[in-house]
Measured scan of single mutants.
Amino acid sequence: KKKYVIKVYFEDTGKEVEIEAESKEEALEAAKRLAEELGLKIKKVEIYP
């Protein structure tokens, strides 16, 4: 089964997080949740198959 690796870059902090997920949708949801939890804004998202 294919996994996606999503790199999320946050504004202000210069922080980046990698998330593995089964689908792009799932990964983007996780990225949004994470940003909310951390109180950060997402600057850029890169998706690698």
Score class of each variant (00 low, 15 high):
Lys1Ala: 07
Lys1Pro: 14
Lys1Asp: 07
Lys1Glu: 05
Lys1Tyr: 13
Lys1Thr: 12
Lys1His: 11
Lys1Cys: 13
Lys1Asn: 11
Lys1Phe: 13
Lys2Pro: 02
Lys2Gln: 09
Lys2His: 12
Lys2Arg: 12
Lys2Met: 13
Lys2Leu: 13
Lys2Val: 09
Lys2Glu: 07
Lys2Gly: 07
Lys2Tyr: 11
Lys3Arg: 07
Lys3Tyr: 13
Lys3Ala: 12
Lys3Asp: 02
Tyr4Arg: 01
Tyr4Gln: 02
Tyr4Trp: 09
Tyr4His: 02
Tyr4Gly: 00
Tyr4Ala: 01
Tyr4Thr: 02
Tyr4Pro: 00
Val5Thr: 12
Val5His: 08
Val5Ser: 08
Val5Asp: 01
Val5Cys: 02
Val5Gln: 07
Val5Glu: 01
Val5Lys: 14
Val5Phe: 10
Val5Asn: 04
Ile6Arg: 00
Ile6Ser: 01
Ile6Leu: 09
Ile6Val: 04
Ile6Gly: 02
Ile6Lys: 00
Ile6His: 01
Ile6Asp: 00
Lys7Pro: 00
Lys7Cys: 03
Lys7Ser: 02
Lys7Asp: 01
Lys7Trp: 11
Lys7Ile: 04
Lys7Phe: 06
Lys7Met: 04
Val8Trp: 04
Val8Ile: 12
Val8Lys: 00
Val8Cys: 03
Val8Ser: 00
Val8Met: 07
Val8Ala: 02
Val8Pro: 00
Val8Phe: 13
Val8Asp: 00
Val8Gly: 00
Tyr9Lys: 03
Tyr9Met: 10
Tyr9Phe: 07
Tyr9Arg: 05
Tyr9Thr: 06
Tyr9Val: 08
Tyr9Pro: 00
Tyr9Gln: 04
Tyr9Cys: 03
Tyr9Leu: 07
Tyr9Trp: 15
Phe10Val: 01
Phe10Met: 02
Phe10Arg: 00
Phe10Tyr: 03
Phe10Thr: 01
Phe10Glu: 00
Phe10Ala: 01
Phe10Trp: 11
Phe10Ile: 01
Phe10Asn: 00
Glu11Asn: 14
Glu11Arg: 15
Glu11Ala: 13
Glu11Leu: 15
Glu11Ser: 14
Glu11Asp: 12
Glu11Thr: 11
Asp12Met: 13
Asp12Lys: 14
Asp12Glu: 08
Asp12Ser: 10
Asp12His: 12
Asp12Cys: 10
Asp12Arg: 15
Asp12Gln: 10
Thr13Cys: 02
Thr13Pro: 11
Thr13Asn: 13
Thr13Tyr: 12
Thr13Met: 09
Thr13Asp: 04
Thr13Leu: 08
Thr13Glu: 10
Gly14Tyr: 12
Gly14Arg: 04
Gly14Trp: 14
Gly14Lys: 10
Lys15Asp: 05
Lys15Arg: 06
Lys15Phe: 10
Lys15Glu: 09
Lys15Ala: 06
Lys15Met: 05
Lys15Leu: 07
Lys15Asn: 14
Glu16Thr: 11
Glu16Leu: 07
Glu16Cys: 04
Glu16Ile: 13
Glu16Arg: 06
Glu16Asn: 11
Glu16Gly: 09
Glu16Tyr: 11
Glu16Trp: 11
Glu16Ser: 10
Glu16Pro: 06
Val17Lys: 04
Val17Thr: 07
Val17Trp: 12
Val17Asp: 02
Val17Ile: 10
Val17Ala: 06
Val17Gln: 03
Glu18Gly: 04
Glu18Tyr: 04
Glu18Ile: 14
Glu18Pro: 02
Glu18Asp: 11
Glu18Asn: 05
Glu18Val: 09
Glu18Met: 09
Glu18Trp: 08
Glu18Leu: 12
Glu18Gln: 12
Glu18Lys: 04
Glu18Thr: 07
Glu18Arg: 05
Ile19His: 02
Ile19Val: 06
Ile19Cys: 05
Ile19Phe: 08
Ile19Ala: 03
Ile19Gln: 02
Ile19Arg: 02
Ile19Lys: 01
Glu20Leu: 09
Glu20Gln: 11
Glu20Lys: 04
Glu20Met: 10
Glu20Trp: 12
Glu20Val: 11
Glu20Phe: 06
Glu20Ser: 06
Glu20Tyr: 13
Ala21Leu: 07
Ala21Tyr: 05
Ala21Glu: 06
Ala21Arg: 08
Ala21Gly: 08
Ala21Val: 11
Ala21Pro: 00
Ala21Thr: 09
Ala21His: 08
Ala21Trp: 02
Glu22Gly: 08
Glu22Val: 08
Glu22His: 11
Glu22Trp: 14
Glu22Met: 04
Glu22Tyr: 12
Glu22Ile: 04
Glu22Arg: 05
Glu22Gln: 04
Ser23Arg: 03
Ser23His: 04
Ser23Phe: 07
Ser23Met: 02
Ser23Ile: 03
Ser23Pro: 00
Ser23Trp: 04
Ser23Glu: 06
Ser23Ala: 04
Ser23Leu: 03
Ser23Tyr: 03
Ser23Asp: 08
Lys24Val: 14
Lys24Asn: 11
Lys24Gln: 10
Lys24Trp: 12
Lys24Tyr: 12
Lys24His: 11
Lys24Glu: 13
Lys24Ala: 13
Lys24Thr: 13
Lys24Pro: 05
Lys24Phe: 09
Glu25Cys: 07
Glu25Ala: 10
Glu25Ile: 07
Glu25Phe: 09
Glu25Asp: 13
Glu25Lys: 06
Glu25Trp: 06
Glu25Thr: 07
Glu25Asn: 05
Glu25Leu: 05
Glu25Tyr: 09
Glu25Arg: 06
Glu26Leu: 11
Glu26Ile: 06
Glu26Tyr: 15
Glu26Asn: 08
Glu26Cys: 06
Glu26Arg: 10
Glu26Gly: 13
Glu26Gln: 09
Glu26Thr: 08
Glu26His: 12
Glu26Trp: 15
Ala27Phe: 02
Ala27His: 01
Ala27Cys: 06
Ala27Asn: 00
Ala27Trp: 03
Ala27Met: 02
Ala27Gln: 00
Ala27Tyr: 02
Ala27Glu: 00
Ala27Thr: 02
Ala27Asp: 00
Leu28Thr: 05
Leu28Trp: 14
Leu28Cys: 04
Leu28Glu: 07
Leu28Ser: 05
Leu28Phe: 08
Leu28Asp: 04
Leu28Met: 11
Leu28Lys: 07
Leu28Arg: 06
Leu28Gln: 08
Leu28Pro: 01
Glu29Val: 13
Glu29Phe: 15
Glu29His: 13
Glu29Pro: 02
Glu29Gln: 06
Glu29Asp: 10
Glu29Leu: 15
Ala30Asn: 10
Ala30Leu: 15
Ala30Phe: 14
Ala30Val: 11
Ala30Cys: 05
Ala30Trp: 15
Ala30Ser: 11
Ala30Pro: 00
Ala30Tyr: 15
Ala30Gln: 11
Ala31His: 01
Ala31Tyr: 09
Ala31Met: 10
Ala31Leu: 06
Ala31Pro: 01
Ala31Arg: 00
Ala31Glu: 00
Ala31Lys: 00
Ala31Asn: 00
Lys32Tyr: 15
Lys32Phe: 15
Lys32Ile: 09
Lys32Ala: 11
Lys32Asn: 12
Lys32Asp: 06
Lys32Met: 14
Lys32Gln: 10
Lys32Ser: 11
Lys32Gly: 04
Lys32Leu: 13
Arg33Lys: 10
Arg33Phe: 10
Arg33Met: 08
Arg33Glu: 03
Arg33Cys: 05
Arg33Leu: 06
Arg33Gly: 05
Arg33Thr: 05
Arg33Gln: 03
Leu34Val: 13
Leu34Asn: 02
Leu34Arg: 08
Leu34Ser: 03
Leu34Lys: 09
Leu34Glu: 02
Leu34Ala: 05
Leu34Trp: 13
Leu34Gly: 01
Leu34Asp: 01
Leu34Cys: 02
Leu34Ile: 07
Ala35Val: 04
Ala35Arg: 02
Ala35Tyr: 02
Ala35Phe: 04
Ala35Trp: 05
Ala35Leu: 03
Ala35His: 02
Ala35Pro: 01
Ala35Ser: 09
Ala35Thr: 02
Ala35Gln: 03
Ala35Ile: 03
Glu36Phe: 15
Glu36Lys: 12
Glu36Met: 14
Glu36Ala: 14
Glu36Asp: 11
Glu37Pro: 01
Glu37Ile: 14
Glu37Lys: 15
Glu37Val: 14
Glu37His: 15
Glu37Gln: 15
Glu37Tyr: 15
Leu38Tyr: 12
Leu38Asn: 05
Leu38Gly: 02
Leu38Asp: 01
Leu38Ala: 12
Leu38Ser: 07
Leu38Ile: 09
Leu38Pro: 01
Leu38Cys: 04
Leu38Gln: 06
Leu38Thr: 05
Leu38Lys: 06
Gly39Ala: 12
Gly39Phe: 05
Gly39Lys: 13
Gly39Arg: 11
Gly39His: 08
Gly39Ile: 02
Gly39Trp: 02
Gly39Val: 03
Leu40Gln: 04
Leu40Gly: 02
Leu40Cys: 03
Leu40Met: 08
Leu40Phe: 14
Leu40Thr: 03
Leu40Lys: 03
Leu40Pro: 01
Leu40Asp: 02
Leu40Ala: 03
Leu40Tyr: 15
Leu40Asn: 02
Lys41Arg: 13
Lys41Thr: 08
Lys41His: 06
Lys41Met: 09
Lys41Val: 09
Lys41Tyr: 12
Lys41Cys: 09
Lys41Ser: 10
Lys41Trp: 04
Lys41Gln: 04
Lys41Ile: 05
Ile42Ala: 01
Ile42His: 01
Ile42Asp: 00
Ile42Leu: 08
Ile42Tyr: 02
Ile42Gly: 00
Ile42Cys: 02
Ile42Thr: 01
Ile42Phe: 03
Ile42Gln: 00
Ile42Met: 03
Ile42Ser: 01
Ile42Pro: 01
Ile42Val: 05
Lys43Gln: 08
Lys43Asp: 08
Lys43Arg: 14
Lys43Glu: 09
Lys43Pro: 01
Lys43Leu: 09
Lys43Thr: 09
Lys43Phe: 13
Lys43Val: 06
Lys44Ile: 06
Lys44His: 12
Lys44Tyr: 09
Lys44Asp: 03
Lys44Arg: 10
Lys44Glu: 06
Lys44Ala: 07
Val45Glu: 01
Val45Asp: 00
Val45Leu: 04
Val45Thr: 05
Val45Trp: 13
Val45Met: 12
Val45Arg: 01
Glu46Leu: 09
Glu46Thr: 09
Glu46Ile: 11
Glu46Phe: 14
Glu46His: 13
Glu46Met: 12
Glu46Gly: 02
Glu46Ala: 08
Glu46Asn: 06
Glu46Arg: 05
Ile47Trp: 12
Ile47Phe: 08
Ile47Pro: 03
Ile47His: 09
Ile47Tyr: 11
Ile47Asp: 03
Ile47Ser: 06
Ile47Leu: 11
Ile47Glu: 08
Tyr48Cys: 11
Tyr48His: 11
Tyr48Asn: 11
Tyr48Ile: 10
Tyr48Trp: 12
Tyr48Leu: 11
Tyr48Glu: 04
Tyr48Ser: 05
Tyr48Met: 10
Tyr48Thr: 13
Pro49Gly: 12
Pro49Leu: 14
Pro49Trp: 13
Pro49Thr: 14
Pro49Asn: 14
Pro49Met: 15
Pro49Gln: 15
Pro49Glu: 14
Pro49Phe: 13
Pro49Ile: 15
